[in-house]
Each structure stands twice: as C-alpha cells, then as structure tokens.
Amino acid sequence: MITLSNINKTFRVARRQAGFGRAVKALFSREYELIHALNDVSFTIKDGEMVGYIGPNGAGKSTTIKIMCGILTPDSGMCKINGRVPWRDRIAHVREIGVVFGQRSQLWWDVPIIDSFELLRDIYKIDRKIYKNNLDELTVLLDLSELLKTPARSLSLGQRMRCEIAASLLHSPKILFLDEPTIGLDAVSKMTVRQFIKRINAERGTTVILTTHDMQDIEALTERILLIGKGRILLDGSLTELKKRSSRRKTLVVEYNGSAPEITDDMTLIEKKNGRLVISLDPEIFPVSDAIAYLAARTELTDVSVSGITAEEMVAELYREYHI
C-alpha cells in the first residue's frame, strides 16, 4: 500500500543570465527562482495495482518517484509505503522495491550479465534458493538464456532492457518502479517488455508504477492513470472512463472500388485518395452502422474499419485542456 498525502516540494534554481555584461554581474550577485515541483500531491495505490503515471517533462513525475524511492525528502506532507516512510527507513524500504531507470543502466558494462546479477544477489543478500528460482523464472519469461554470458556493452538496447528489468526483480520486490522502460526500444522488444510486466503483475501481484511518454505502454498495461501537470495531480481515474469522457468521435476508414461516394454534412472528411476514405463522425448524431449502410448503398465497399480515440490523442487533448 502506497499513500502520499499533501506532499510539497520546492527547488531553488539559480537563474542563468544571457549576455556578456549580465554574466559578469552574475559573478557577484545571483538571482534565484523557486520552482514548485510538487504542490499538494496526494494519492493512494493499493497492493497489486498497476498505475501509469503520466505528464509532460518537468511536471514533477520523477520528483514523485524519487520521493517514493527514498532518494528525496519532501518539504512537507507524508508518504507511507508498506507502513514505512521511505526517507527515514531507507535500507528496509529499498529492500522491497525494484527500480528501473530507462535511460541509466545498473548493469556492468564490460562483464557478463550473470556476474552483475550475482553481485546484486550479494548486495541484496538474497537467499540462494530464492535467487535461483527467480533467476530461472526470469530467464524463461524474458528469454535471457542466450544473453547471460554476454557483457552488457555487446547487447542491443532491447536485450539490455530485458536484463535491466530482470536485475530489478531478482530480490522479489513488492513494488516495481519503471521509469520510461520502453524508451528507444524497437517494436518487438516493446511488446516483450509489456507482456512481461503484465505477467509479473498478474502472477506475483507486484505493484507496478510506470512513467512513460509512450501512450501505447499505458494502453497495453495500466487500467488506472495518474496525470500530473505543473506539480499538481490533475486526474486520477481509469483509462476507459477517461476515453469516454474525452472525445466520443469515431474514425471510419473505408476502401472501395469505383467512384468515391458523396458524404453527408454529418461526416467530416479527413482524407480521400486511391479508393480510400477516412471520415470522422459523432455516433450520437450519426450512428456508425447507419454511416456504413449509407456508404455501402453508394459504392462497392471492400474494407471497413472503425476506431475510437487513441490514448495518444486523448492525452494530447488532456494536456490542451489543462494548459500543461
């Protein structure tokens, strides 16, 4: 159980001046500005939940994660994770969490992966039997058997990320923090990583907190999302609900033989070329089935597909709505 209540955090940042004269002046006196990184942030995450933590760069995502990991102390407010205050009881706390920073590696660059793993076993004082079980399980699930003997420097980004994730799960943490785990990965690796995270969450009941800019991660993984902007929690709810709440409009893509059909005023044309037509419509006004029937009556349709709003579009809409 993770509880954050009324967390505040402010940073003081020196203002850098442009121009020669000002740079000289800054030698003697310097101006500072206060940045409210977190403003009264509160939320609760239950055991075994999978939460997507989203927001634009600089919104306060990583500050929150750092506080939950025990790296940072907040100015005020309380954070309790499994009954502990992370920054007061650091060592006991971090034993129960796993952290993956997508852009920084915890693997040794020049030695085989298995050596890094064994060092982690000693750092976390993992029981040999548990270590062996975990390693075997992770090797199978993440398909690591070929990689374990290779040094990290000769792995591809995707392979390395699989090893990173395994590394942070060796000590069977109750909570897993994933900071942009799919950044820079190719499509296949992304899918493997997502499937794996889902499984770990379902089978081990590991609580997963995921920050990402890739909305497909969110769509594939998390039911609940937390949106943060300018240091405030703006939204806390389920993805489906949010989708419903935002735009209801549907996108209709049809392919046809012969001449292009006329469309009515209730349909908005997005694209039309080479026997392909993309139309956007509001199902409340013009039901999708009616639209298909309407088009089928006017031309020979060869393919039809309907899609709702994507998570990507929805988040873009949210950002616009909250001016963040």
Partner: peptide
C-alpha cells in the same frame, strides 16, 4: 566570447 561567458557562469569554479 561564448567560452568566456560560459566560464563566467561558473563563478565558484573560477
């Protein structure tokens, strides 16, 4: 000029 201004920014370093 750029290098000079840049190094001015770091007054403690200087």
């Amino acid at each position: 000029r750029i290098r000079f201004i840049n190094s001015l920014q770091y007054r403690a370093a200087a």
